[in-house]
Design a protein around this nucleic acid. Structure first.
Lengths: 338, 338
DNA sequence: GCGCACTGTCGATGCGTATCGACAACTTCC
DNA sequence: GGAAGTTGTCGATACGCATCGACAGTGCGC
């Protein structure tokens, strides 16, 4: 193993000088700097992470706590992880992955063993037992998702209330006086994730404003059979010009399919608005009018906040809960106003 | 921060005794051990990871290198990651995630900075530029996937040749004399992943044995439109009792759907064998006869080998390439023998 | 009663880095 | 021309733990 002492010997300087060249925390003459950098390159020196963490009290690692419930909506997870890893690397940090079946133990381990400088927690339930534990750690924590009580922790999430509002606005403006919301998967509802309620609240508020009725079909497993049942029920309830909202991202495609199977064409016979990523909305035929759910934006913002919290010099963000505004994009599954 | 010295003070012993209690590398009297353990609990002591790594030359971290190409077949990735994380935790290790867009640099960083004790690499291409770099590291590396030249590294993968054989065997035995293979997604083919060829080789061999013809429809993007095109072509080529093989896991459902859309019912009109996980094969209606592709088995085996490589005392596995045997499960999409 | 092996504990040291204080060599300014 | 500041480098130390050698204390056999 090559150490900074080896570099020092080759460059003809002391070990501390090598350290200062790398950190830039003291001024070094151009000539010395060059000699050191040359030696570093020649020896392909890389600092030892453990030693550095020990001496500097910083690990350059971000802990990422995710839940891998088998069968859960893990499909949407990867873009989050990818974005988080990318942002971390951009700041010369790495990502340590902790699966949440460890529960709070994973959190205390991350902080107690000094495995990381900060923690990102995903998949937050409304009344999440890990929140108080997370709040008591001595490292900054950011939540992706909003619990009922964040205990002073910073949170980032999509503004689901706004998403509900946007979807209902769009349908009501197009003349639908009857709107059916096809709800979330049973396990999401059961786990009491906050966004279910938040979306519904926004949708209800918008419906009130427009004076239209909202009916809820729920819960819906995101598969063929579930979608077919839901569509049957939705069509039975709605009359002419039914407006359908699917805030359950993985169910959007199956619902679309189930409608087509029955000869009901969204954009001709009914309107369909999905809550999903733009990419998946564009991929299907016909392209789905959607309220965007962009994991990358949310993750990016979360990492911004996290690094600001880590930066001792900078001032910290005051707003605890930050909601990312979604965007409605009109595509081929919604009817125009009559 | 609580240190082992604090524990020692509370327990009335020396710091080294605390260390020996934790590691068990020297015998400690029952009474002393209890005092130390009590002190540890009372102070909720956890060892500092950096200091431990520095002193012991072991990080207790496994590096996981995965590719997050946007749009790639990342769906199947999570079970791998989850299993790897679980196996690591079972041996008191953590997982450091490195996304492969860093290329070889990620590997040299993991090893050079002593960030981890061993590395798992996924998504291996036939002629993968990272292989020689990985082989030159001073930490054990295991590949999930088989390159053309593994440069002495251990590999684990599904036995795709056997999978091809099993699928064709099944169809030929059921009396199909014309078998259509609906191939992989364009990006997989383009990236030259080994298993495409391996599967085909096995399928061809079995077809030869049985004296049946094989036709290839390829490449097929795993979506509605791609599946429809592929099915149209497959049905045009095959005659009565067409046997269809879909070795492209994410395309299995769309292909099934496309068949049903045309009124062609697998299990009644044609036979369909998919290469996919048992879970997804069972989830659809009708349930798909499949050759199992179990990421969990592969990952588990990979981690077994990795920990054996890490265990200095134990002997190392001699076989470099280890192929996990797939299993065919007959379900509702295949015709019985006439 | 004496040597001997064994058990349980301690003090000292080193792992590789960051950082603090010291200090020599220069500059600048009255 | 001397005081005061600035720049660039070094030596020493601390970070928290694992591990090695040393060494009291104990039980054993002869």
């Amino acid at each position: 193993m090559v150490t900074s002492r080896d570099v020092a010997r080759v460059a003809g300087v002391s070990q501390s000088t090598v350290s200062y060249v790398m950190s830039g925390r003291r001024s070094i003459s151009a000539e010395t700097r060059k000699r050191v950098l040359d030696a570093i390159e020649q020896l392909t020196y890389q600092p030892n992470a453990g030693a550095r963490a020990l001496a500097s009290q910083r690990t350059q690692v971000i802990g990422l706590v995710v839940r891998f419930r088998p069968g859960a909506d893990t499909t949407g997870l990867l873009p989050f992880i990818e974005t988080i890893a990318g942002c971390a690397r951009a700041e010369d940090h790495d990502v340590l992955l902790v699966t949440a079946d460890e529960g709070s133990a994973g959190l205390t381990r991350l902080a107690g063993r000094t495995l990381c400088d900060a923690i990102v927690m995903m998949d937050i339930e409304a009344d999440d037992a890990r929140i108080p534990v997370a709040a008591s750690l001595r490292v900054p924590v950011i939540l992706i998702g909003v619990p009922d009580d964040s205990a002073g922790l910073h949170c980032v999430d999509v503004d689901f209330a706004e998403a509900g509002r946007l979807a209902v606005d769009e349908l009501a403006s197009a003349g639908h006086d009857r709107i059916v919301v096809i709800g979330h998967a049973p396990d999401v509802v059961e786990r009491d994730i906050n966004f279910v309620r938040r979306f519904q609240r926004g949708a209800d508020a918008a419906a009130d404003e427009h004076g239209v009725a909202i009916e809820l079909v729920s819960p819906v497993p995101p598969n063929r059979a579930g979608a077919e049942d839901a569509v049957r029920e939705a069509l039975a309830r709605g009359g002419e010009r039914t407006g359908i909202v699917v805030p359950n991202s993985p169910a959007v495609q199956p619902v679309l399919q189930a409608l087509l199977d029955r000869g009901v064409v969204p954009g001709r016979d009914v309107s369909l608005v999905g809550l999903c990523t733009d990419a998946s909305a564009e991929a299907s035929t016909p392209a789905v009018t959607n309220v965007s759910l962009e994991p990358r934006d949310v993750s990016r913002r979360a990492m911004e906040i996290l690094f600001r919290l880590l930066d001792r010099s900078g001032e910290r963000p005051t707003e605890l809960v930050e909601l990312i505004r979604p965007r409605l994009t009109r595509r081929d599954t919604t009817l125009p106003a009559p």
